[in-house]
Design a protein around this nucleic acid. Structure first.
Length: 594
RNA sequence: GGGGUGGUAGUUCAACUGGUUAGAGCACCUGCCUGUCACGCAGGAAGUUGCGGGUUCGAUCCCCGUCCAUCCCGCCA
């Protein structure tokens, strides 16, 4: 083997005449007859090496047979290029390496796609050959940034006196929250471990143990359906602290994100992040993770609707519904056809009954759509109050509050992207606080935790727990960046009686609570400090930092949206023997729906 | 679980309203070429049109089913 003296990204004119050695992959080759140029690549860069028939016939003949992605080592002399052949686009563009000795370590089959052009192949194809895709410039850079962020994270928490503690990967399954990935136990036949959805209970126990500042960079697993920003296994920065209140944790979270953005991007985020209550976020933006890079707030049309002639909307208002709207400054961009498409999308995806609209052409009165239901007086009040200008179109949805807010929230985003209202260079972090503690589950006619069952109610609302659980705010908080939820957490319950009361409200009786969370409840008998914490979605942070919308861009070996790994073809079948050891029997496929 | 888009040469794409021998770029192979860096020139090989069925004289194209990818809704304490 020829051991390298340099990497492929560092040789310059300073090294002229030096005898050096390089190792790398053949990224490109140009055979000019008696002269062969090869771009030799490693993760540091590219250096052009030259084989000259007249100077070194033997190595030249071997070089003639080299193909793309062969791995070689070369020994040679750094020479300067003729001035007309200098490549100013390359760091190493002023020199060549004139090869004396060539060693071929591994010849590559014809590569399934062009490593120099990541998008020369479909994503499916690239995922099959992920180890090759990881050779591309983009992914090398993404993985490097991920590494930098991991280091910056450990540095930050360590500096602030947090200690990293590992928690089990095989743990107890709890039916709360997301679906668990289960691991059958061989020794205890018929019993299962679960992979952690998060180390939630462990970190609370660590607080009881007195590790008052804990963090961990940890894999979590949730067996649900996936999206461009969600994978079955993902990495969290998990944090828990004792003797703190909500502000202590959000301050810490703010400072951590500021540090990360500064270290990775050299960007100064605001001193204080915007804080919105859940209600404000929902009512103003139709989302609990609003993208604040653009304004376009939802407008309430209630007071105009009740004085209009539009019975449908009036009835909605009278039966506790909502009528809200968004305003767009481009009426011309919304033809009948476009509006129909938007309507179909909202009907299909967000179960609205319709999308109403009106336009304003001359700045004085409303036209088209549902404008005829509003008399001149109301029209001019709306134009005035809502700042409607000529050329505006206003989209209106009336329905149950949940439907109106989620549909308009989605429409707001869709239109913003259509109209290029999103400043891609902007960072808009915010905290969303005062989440409701419970969410009414219509299917099961019961209250569910919105966050998780250990979340503390807001102390001011504890008296409402019995009569009006839907109105109880939690001490839960989410941190949002550019429309992505990048983290969240809560102050936890550290009192056995309050915890037991919450379990009861969640329809978990004492026996059940004891079976599922008895260990935690027991721990709370022995001096549990007030505590709280949060977790950041590490993959999403990296996604934002590299400017991608796909979580697969920041994970070395990601899964597809159907949770498969195309490269190693997992999940896969296992031997009957393995199943038998685990006391497992598989159902026939046609029994699937039994 | 539901909806949208896509699957054609190694790869990225094309192929009119269902019609004759399914084309092109890159990669690959052969030959030529001493300053290329998207090298150039000449030639060549390369196809189960995802899979299964149906309609038709005839299917890459239409229909049904299925698999895979991707985006979204539900879901994700």
């Amino acid at each position: 083997m020829i051991k390298r003296t340099h990497t492929c990204g560092e040789l310059t004119k300073k090294n002229l005449k030096e005898e050096i050695s390089l190792n790398g992959w053949i990224s490109k080759s140009r055979d000019l007859g008696g002269l062969i140029f090869i771009d030799l690549r490693d993760r540091y860069g590219v250096t052009q090496i030259v084989f000259n028939e007249k100077l070194n016939k033997k190595e030249f003949e071997i070089a003639k047979k080299l193909g793309l992605e062969d791995v070689i080592g070369v020994n040679g002399q750094v020479i300067s290029r003729p001035s007309e052949a200098i490549n100013s686009k390359m760091v190493t563009g002023e020199i060549d390496v004139n090869v004396n000795k060539l060693c071929v370590y591994n010849e590559s089959d014809n590569p399934p796609f062009d490593i120099n052009d990541r998008f020369s192949a479909s994503e499916e194809h690239r995922l099959r050959y992920r180890y090759l895709e990881l050779r591309t410039k983009e992914l090398q850079s993404n993985i490097l940034i991920r590494d930098k962020a991991l280091l910056a994270t450990r540095k930050y928490f360590s500096k602030n006196n947090f200690i990293e503690i590992e928690t089990p990967i095989l743990m107890k399954s709890t039916p709360e929250g997301a679906r668990d990935f289960l691991v059958p136990s061989r020794i205890h036949s018929g019993k299962f471990y679960a992979l952690p959805q998060s180390p939630q209970t462990y970190k609370q126990l660590l607080m009881v143990s007195g590790f008052d500042k804990y963090f961990q960079i940890v894999k979590c697993f949730r067996d649900e359906d996936f999206r461009s920003d969600r994978q079955p296994e993902f990495t969290q920065i998990d944090i828990e602290m004792s003797f703190v209140d909500q502000d202590d944790i959000t301050d810490m979270g703010t400072h951590f994100i500021q540090t990360l953005w500064k270290e990775i991007l050299d960007v100064d985020l605001p001193d204080k992040f915007t804080i919105l209550t859940y209600k404000e976020a929902m009512n103003t933006y139709g989302s609990d993770k609003p993208d604040l890079r653009f304004d376009m707030q939802l407008m309430n049309l209630k007071k105009y609707v009740i004085n209009s002639d539009f019975d449908t909307f009036k009835n909605i208002i009278n039966s506790d519904g909502l009528v809200k709207a968004v305003k767009v400054n481009n009426a011309d961009g919304y033809s009948r056809k476009t509006i129909d498409e938007l309507t179909k999308w909202l009907k299909d995806q967000y179960s609205v009954k319709g999308l109403a609209f009106f336009k304003c052409i001359d700045g004085e009165k409303l036209e088209g759509g549902i404008s005829k239901f509003f008399n001149e007086n109301i029209q001019s009040r709306m134009i005035n109050d809502l700042g409607i200008k000529s050329g505006d179109i206003v989209f209106v949805i009336g329905d149950k509050p949940k439907i109106v807010l989620s549909a308009l929230g989605a429409l707001r985003l869709k239109i913003a992207h259509r109209e290029n209202l999103v400043d891609e260079n902007k960072w808009s972090p915010l905290w969303v606080v005062d989440f409701p503690l419970f969410d009414w589950n219509e299917d099961h006619k019961r209250w569910d935790s919105l966050h998780h069952p250990f979340t503390s109610p807001n102390f001011d609302d504890i008296k409402k727990l019995d009569d009006n659980p839907g109105d109880v705010r939690s001490l839960g908080y989410d941190i949002v960046m550019n429309g992505y939820e990048i983290g969240g957490g809560s102050i936890r319950i550290h009192n056995k009686d309050l915890q037991s009361k919450i379990f009861n409200l969640l329809n978990i009786n004492d026996k059940e609570a004891n079976e599922k969370f008895g260990f935690l409840m027991n721990a709370f008998k022995y001096g549990a400090p007030p505590h709280g914490g949060m977790a950041f979605g590490f993959d999403r942070l990296i996604m934002l930092l590299i400017g991608s919308k796909k979580i697969r861009d920041v994970i070395a070996f990601p899964k597809t949206t159907s949770a498969m790994s195309l490269m190693d073809d997992s999940p896969s079948k296992v031997d009957k023997k393995q199943l038998s050891e685990l006391s497992l029997l598989l159902k026939e496929k046609n029994e699937k729906n039994v």
